[in-house]
C-alpha cells in the first residue's frame, strides 16, 4: 500500500518462506513427465511412462476410471445434498417464523465449530448397524451431514443480507412464501450457493478419512483412497507414479480453485463473514 516503506525486505522474506511450496508443486508437475537419476536434482529424460495408470490397471488396484467415477459421484452428490438441504434450512432459520428457531440457530452455531472427525468411530459403528457400511451412499450421507452445520450457517448469512422488502414485495404481488423463496430470494443468494457448492465439492473430492474408514472396499474406492493404497503398497514404490496420479487427482481442484478463488476465501476463512 503505502509508498513510504520499502518493499524488498518483505518480498525477500516471503519468497524464502514460500520456497518449499513452490518447489513441491513445480516438481509435482515436472516429475510426472520426466525421469530423474537417483541422487540427482534435475530430471534427465522425458517420458509418459508415469501416466500408464490411465490405460492399464496397476496390479492389485482398482481401475482408475472406475475410481474417478466414484469420486465424481461422491463429490457431486455431497455438493448437491449439502446445497439443497442448507439452502432450505438456512432460509427457514433466517426468515421463517418457526418455533424453536433460536434453539436451532444456537445448535447450528455450536455444531459448525464442532470437530466432527472425533465422531468417526461412532459413525463407523452406526453405518455397520444400519447396513450402509461399505456403500457410497453411506459415505455420501455422512459427509453431507457433517458439512451441514457449516453450510446452513453460510447460507443463513447470505439470506440475512437479502433485503426484507424484496420478500414483502413478493408477498404483495401475490406470491406464496415458497414462490418468493424460489423465484425472488434464491437468485439473490447465488454467490453463496456457488461458494458453498464449490466448497463442498472440493471437500468431497479431497476427503480421505471418511471414505477410507466407512467404505474401504475396492469397488467403492475414491481417488484419495486409491492414491493412499498405491503409496502403502511396497511392490511399486515410485514417486513419479504417485505424482502423476496425484496431478490427475488434483487438476480439477486447482482449476475450480482458480475460477472461484474469491468466492472461496470467505469459507476458507472459517465461514464467518469477516
Amino acid at each position: 500500500m503505502s509508498q513510504n516503506f520499502k518493499n524488498w525486505p518483505i518480498l525477500t522474506g516471503l519468497v524464502l518462506a514460500t520456497v518449499p511450496i513452490v518447489l513441491m508443486y513445480s516438481y509435482l508437475v515436472l516429475d510426472t513427465v520426466t525421469d530423474t537419476k537417483p541422487g540427482s536434482i534435475f530430471p534427465n529424460s522425458f517420458t509418459l511412462e508415469h501416466w500408464r495408470f490411465l490405460y492399464e490397471d496397476i496390479e492389485g488396484k482398482a481401475n482408475i476410471w472406475q475410481v474417478t467415477l466414484n469420486t465424481l459421484v461422491f463429490a457431486s452428490s455431497v455438493m448437491l445434498l449439502v446445497l439443497s438441504v442448507s439452502s432450505t434450512a438456512g432460509y427457514a432459520l433466517s426468515r421463517l417464523n418457526i418455533p424453536f428457531r433460536r434453539e436451532f440457530l444456537a445448535g447450528v452455531l455450536i455444531l459448525h465449530a464442532f470437530p466432527s472427525i472425533t465422531l468417526i468411530i461412532a459413525i463407523f459403528l452406526i453405518l455397520q448397524l444400519i447396513g450402509l457400511y461399505n456403500t457410497l451412499i453411506g459415505v455420501i450421507i455422512v459427509m453431507t451431514s457433517l458439512q451441514l452445520p457449516l453450510g446452513i450457517w453460510i447460507m443463513k448469512g447470505f439470506y440475512d443480507s437479502v433485503p426484507w422488502e424484496i420478500e414483502m414485495a413478493g408477498l404483495q404481488d401475490g406470491a406464496s412464501r415458497f414462490t418468493v423463496w424460489y423465484r425472488l430470494v434464491l437468485p439473490q443468494v447465488r454467490p453463496g450457493i456457488i461458494a458453498l457448492g464449490v466448497f463442498s465439492f472440493l471437500s468431497g473430492w479431497g476427503e480421505y478419512i471418511l471414505p477410507t474408514v466407512l467404505a474401504p472396499a475396492n469397488n467403492v474406492q475414491v481417488l484419495s483412497g486409491y492414491l493412499a493404497s498405491l503409496i502403502a503398497d511396497d511392490r511399486n514404490f515410485e514417486f513419479n507414479l504417485f505424482k502423476s496420479v496425484g496431478l490427475f487427482y488434483a487438476t480439477p481442484v486447482v482449476i475450480m480453485y482458480l475460477f472461484f478463488q474469491d468466492k472461496l476465501m470467505n469459507i476458507y476463512g472459517g465461514g464467518t463473514k469477516g
Partner: peptide, 12 residues
C-alpha cells in the same frame, strides 16, 4: 485446497 493424500506425498 490440495487433497491431503497428495499434499503429504509431496512432503514425503
Amino acid at each position: 485446497i490440495s487433497p491431503s493424500v497428495l499434499y503429504v506425498v509431496l512432503w514425503k
